[in-house]
Structures are given as structure tokens and as C-alpha cells.
Amino acid sequence: MARHKVSRIIVIDAPAARIFEILTTPALHPEFDGSGSVRGSMAGPERLEQDSEFGMDMKMFGLRYRMRNRVVEYEKDRLIAWRHVGPHRWRYELEELPKGGTRVTETFDYSYGFPAFYVLGGMPARNARGIEETLVRLKDLAEARQD
């Protein structure tokens, strides 16, 4: 694993386009969020694309707050990443496999800004657990949907 990044991978029995549609629909983010912090979509477009801004209702450590995000990386059906107040990024990379299904890699990239803050706060381990649960929930959601 790269320094100042936390990544996990899952294979989902669904085409990349279906998974990408879920990832680019902010209203669905609470359904696949495994961290328990995303509570709802509060502002922004129905579908995300490069430079889209969207807001989410959040809750962490018992505190409710709102987070504004901006899409900073985007390749249709292959890659999406967003950042918010902090310079770190949440990234999803999708790779369709030759024998079917899609490999999905979710990465929390905290190499931007002040990585020591995240390490001291225990965020890499906390985010790893959240990513693992998110990927399972994303798999369940994508495999249950029909094209």
C-alpha cells in the first residue's frame, strides 16, 4: 500500500457502468456508505461529473455537520474522486474483468496537506474499516440492481 493512502479492493458481479451510476448519484451515497457518517444528500446535481459540487449531511463522533465536496477526477465508467474541506480525496477506480464482473478499488488518499494529522487521529485505520464495509454494501447494491 502506498504511503498516506488506504485502499481496499472488491470484485463485483456487475458491469462498471452500473457501479459508476451508483457512485455518481449522491442520493445513493448513504445506502453504500460503510462508515456510518453519510446521512443524506443535501445539495448538488442528480448525477456527478467533473467539477460537480455536492453537499452531504454527515454525522461523526455524535456530531451532525454538513460537508461540501467537489469532483476532482472523473473518467466515465472508470474513475471518480472527490475532495472536501481537507485536501484529501476519496477515489473509486473501476476495471471490468475479462471473465466478467468489475474490480473496484476505493482509496482514501490523505497524502495532500498534512498527513500526520490523519495518522495521529487514527483516521487511516478507521477509514480502512469504513472502506471495507462500503465496498461490501456497494457490491450488494450493484448486484441487486438490473440494467
Score class of each variant (00 low, 15 high):
residue 27 A to G: 00
residue 11 V to E: 14
residue 99 K to I: 09
residue 142 A to D: 13
residue 141 L to Q: 07
residue 135 L to E: 12
residue 15 P to M: 07
residue 118 Y to Q: 03
residue 128 A to K: 15
residue 49 E to S: 12
residue 75 E to G: 09
residue 78 R to E: 15
residue 5 K to H: 09
residue 81 A to L: 09
residue 120 L to S: 01
residue 120 L to P: 03
residue 92 Y to L: 08
residue 29 H to G: 01
residue 58 M to G: 06
residue 104 V to I: 06
residue 125 A to E: 14
residue 13 D to I: 00
residue 44 G to D: 09
residue 58 M to R: 10
residue 52 S to R: 01
residue 47 R to E: 08
residue 45 P to R: 10
residue 142 A to P: 03
residue 76 K to T: 13
residue 43 A to S: 14
residue 67 M to P: 05
residue 58 M to T: 04
residue 140 D to V: 05
residue 138 L to Y: 13
residue 27 A to F: 13
residue 119 V to M: 02
residue 25 T to A: 04
residue 90 W to H: 01
residue 66 R to E: 12
residue 26 P to H: 07
residue 108 F to H: 05
residue 55 G to P: 11
residue 127 N to A: 06
residue 96 E to P: 02
residue 34 G to V: 10
residue 49 E to F: 08
residue 38 V to P: 00
residue 112 Y to S: 04
residue 123 M to R: 07
residue 124 P to L: 11
residue 116 A to G: 00
residue 19 I to T: 11
residue 94 L to N: 14
residue 96 E to V: 01
residue 137 R to T: 10
residue 69 N to G: 03
residue 96 E to Y: 02
residue 60 M to E: 06
residue 20 F to R: 03
residue 117 F to C: 00
residue 18 R to W: 05
residue 95 E to I: 05
residue 122 G to M: 11
residue 99 K to M: 09
residue 23 L to T: 07
residue 10 I to Q: 08
residue 144 A to W: 02
residue 37 S to L: 05
residue 80 I to N: 03
residue 80 I to S: 06
residue 6 V to N: 15
residue 30 P to S: 02
residue 33 D to N: 15
residue 89 R to F: 07
residue 33 D to Q: 02
residue 112 Y to G: 01
residue 139 K to Y: 11
residue 76 K to G: 08
residue 9 I to Q: 14
residue 48 L to A: 05
residue 24 T to G: 00
residue 10 I to A: 06
residue 69 N to D: 05
residue 47 R to A: 06
residue 55 G to K: 10
residue 49 E to N: 02
residue 132 E to Y: 01
residue 86 G to H: 05
residue 26 P to A: 08
residue 69 N to R: 05
residue 43 A to V: 10
residue 70 R to G: 04
residue 57 D to T: 06
residue 111 S to T: 04
residue 111 S to G: 00
residue 136 V to P: 08
residue 86 G to Q: 06
residue 4 H to E: 07
residue 108 F to R: 12
residue 59 K to D: 13
residue 19 I to K: 13
residue 121 G to M: 14
residue 142 A to E: 09
residue 57 D to A: 15
residue 20 F to W: 02
residue 101 G to A: 03
residue 44 G to W: 10
residue 82 W to I: 10
residue 122 G to N: 08
residue 71 V to S: 05
residue 129 R to N: 15
residue 80 I to P: 04
residue 27 A to N: 10
residue 51 D to L: 00
residue 25 T to I: 02
residue 120 L to N: 05
residue 21 E to A: 15
residue 58 M to F: 11
residue 97 L to A: 01
residue 143 E to P: 03
residue 44 G to S: 06
residue 41 S to Q: 13
residue 95 E to P: 00
residue 75 E to N: 11
residue 129 R to C: 07
residue 96 E to T: 12
residue 90 W to P: 01
residue 17 A to E: 11
residue 16 A to S: 15
residue 70 R to E: 14
residue 113 G to I: 06
residue 121 G to I: 02
residue 107 T to G: 00
residue 113 G to D: 01
residue 135 L to D: 10
residue 60 M to S: 12
residue 119 V to Q: 04
residue 34 G to I: 10
residue 60 M to L: 11
residue 64 R to V: 05
residue 110 Y to R: 09
residue 3 R to M: 14
residue 16 A to R: 12
residue 68 R to N: 07
residue 115 P to Y: 03
residue 125 A to V: 15
residue 38 V to T: 10
residue 75 E to H: 14
residue 42 M to N: 12
residue 49 E to R: 04
residue 115 P to A: 03
